[in-house]
Nucleic acid binder design. Structure first.
Lengths: 246, 246
DNA sequence: ATTCGGGCTTGACGTAGGTCAATGCGTGGC
DNA sequence: GCCACGCATTGACCTACGTCAAGCCCGAAT
């Protein structure tokens, strides 16, 4: 959020993170002392599979992403981390390694917090602990949700589910909803990687939904987001919902 | 662990749970006061999809399981909870509902802890918070691992991965390893539901692995676990590992 | 013993969906 | 202006895998 106008400490950055908000001032100072502020350009590789996790990475602006790549080259997006969210929590509690590549989905500013500093901070503050727990619990719930989808539903159902989720704004990975239109960040291939399928299959399914009059995809109209933001307007939300299997 | 010889409070049950171990005695008492001890017979339904989550469920013995069922009837095991582990953590931080059915995978004894009591307990103890965080972080890591597998790997690779995981004892869902043999709890259909496939497909893949001399499945020999424990001996771990894609 | 049922295996079959390749379009570079 | 590149779309193909159905084995119940 705060650009690094190289002041002595990035307290602003740390303090603006939800899980640390409300921390006593001296604790914040301690934390800020252990911070390394970094910027990544879209597409940059932050960490690779099996790299040791030795920082809690908190994103200030932009988006990071954890991607699993199978031997055959297929990619599955496993986590997306937006402003105020974090990454690398496993390192806090154990010696661990990334089990996927971490890349910048957008130009991103992030704080690298040494795990010891974070451990100290959270064990000194029940509220911070609670917020961390909350964050993890939510993430876990979403992860298990996706597990279930990936394991038991076909592409059509997953896509439908993603669309209704996006339409309800309940989806971290979608942009704002305007009337009944949804704007997706990034290219379709990205959503394909989220849904565990290929761009081609996704394209076909979108087409059938369009043909069935469930959605429509207006031309970009040369407005809004300059870079690859796709828009889709939901026509028959109810039908989509029942396709997704509630 | 401790049977409920209806003493006034089940402190033993609560105290033996890792995330609460080391809690001060009075806090334990508070917790114990808010406990409901329950037993479930294998197959029993503890909670259904969309039921409100209003307890932290800690299993003392046995196994609980969360299953997602798709509209077409396919089932995906989303979580398995063994002794000392818990379920329902999302209820601690938000009004939430189960997004899958919770059933007893075995005869199970569990403690139902009111969320308020647990919240109080953990906010009074940094160590307890830390252990809870650790538990969630690990679970999340495993969940994301599975997400990646389900989304990007085929059944053969997933099976191979599961086998090497089991062989290394790193897998919660496998029994002990004896030499290079692994014993799986429950029927194959169960593992199929974990791997996001069907019993038939699993059977075929096991067969091809057997034909290729990577594993073998000895006859039950009328020993060990009475009920449906399957054993498989790993012959070529290295090859399995490379099939799984490291 | 006979029967029943549940889990496992196998076969045959159909299809969802992944792969490969060609085309079209829009954008940025030069 | 042109060219090149990235993304999307579409078609053709093929295979992994899910589905349905039959047979089998074994343990439990009658």
């Amino acid at each position: 959020m705060v650009p690094n106008h190289s002041g002595h400490a990035h307290i602003g950055c740390v303090a603006s993170v939800p899980i640390f908000s409300g921390l006593p001032h001296d604790t914040l100072l301690q934390l800020a002392a252990a911070v390394r502020h970094r910027e990544f350009r879209r597409g940059a590789l932050i960490a690779s599979y099996s790299d040791p996790i030795d920082n809690l990475i908190v994103v200030a602006s932009g988006r990071l992403r954890v991607v699993h790549t199978s031997p055959s080259g297929r990619e599955q997006i496993v986590r997306e981390v937006g402003p105020g969210e974090f990454l690398g929590e496993l390192g806090l509690v154990a010696a661990a390694r990334y089990d996927g590549d971490v890349i910048a989905a957008d130009d991103t500013q992030a704080c690298m917090l040494s795990k010891d500093a974070v451990r100290r901070a959270i064990s000194s503050s029940p509220e911070a602990s609670m917020r961390l727990i909350e964050s993890l619990a939510r993430r876990l719930a979403r992860a298990e949700q996706v597990m279930g989808d990936l394991g038991a539903r076909d592409v059509g159902q997953r896509l439908a589910a993603e669309l209704v989720r996006a339409a309800q704004g309940g989806c971290e990975c979608s942009g704002r909803r305007e009337s009944n239109a949804v704007v997706l960040p990034g290219p379709w291939s990205e959503m394909a990687a989220r849904l565990g399928t290929t761009p081609e299959s996704l394209s076909r399914r979108l087409r059938t939904f369009e043909d069935e009059g469930l959605i429509s995809r207006p031309a970009p109209e040369a407005e809004s987001d300059p870079d690859g933001a796709r828009r889709v307007v939901i026509i028959d939300l109810e039908r989509l919902r029942e396709i997704s299997g509630l």
